[in-house]
């Protein structure tokens, strides 16, 4: 219960029902011509931001939806859209 998240379908739920899916890095890059460095950036590199980030979550023990949440990594709290600069 260090984390609670709002599933777009099920509402506010215990964070342990969810699975983290990484910071939102945008759609998959094209495969052709993707250099190892570009591939690595998409597959592995993180900014490790201490602050608000957009990220993917899956309601694994619930409805199964993937959704994007805004969370402050310093507090583990969701941040409402209007609070994001």
């Amino acid at each position: 219960m260090a984390l609670s998240l709002t599933c777009p379908i099920c509402g506010l739920r215990n964070g342990y029902e969810f699975r983290f899916g990484g910071a939102d890095k945008g759609p998959r890059p094209l495969e052709e011509g993707l250099t190892p460095a570009q591939w690595c950036a998409y597959a592995h590199l993180n900014t490790c931001v201490a602050g608000v980030q957009l990220e993917w979550w899956n309601h694994k023990d619930g409805c199964g939806t993937w959704f994007v949440a805004r969370r402050d990594t310093r507090s583990n709290r969701e941040v409402p859209k209007e609070d994001v600069q």
């Binding site: 219960m1 260090a2 984390l3 215990n14 964070g15 342990y16 699975r19 983290f20 993180n46 490790c48 201490a50 969370r71 990594t73 310093r74 507090s75 583990n76």
Partner: peptide, 13 residues
């Protein structure tokens, strides 16, 4: 906990 964060929160779970 399997999500990145900088808190040092403990959890009941």
């Amino acid at each position: 906990d399997r999500w990145p964060n900088y808190t040092t929160q403990t959890s009941a779970h």
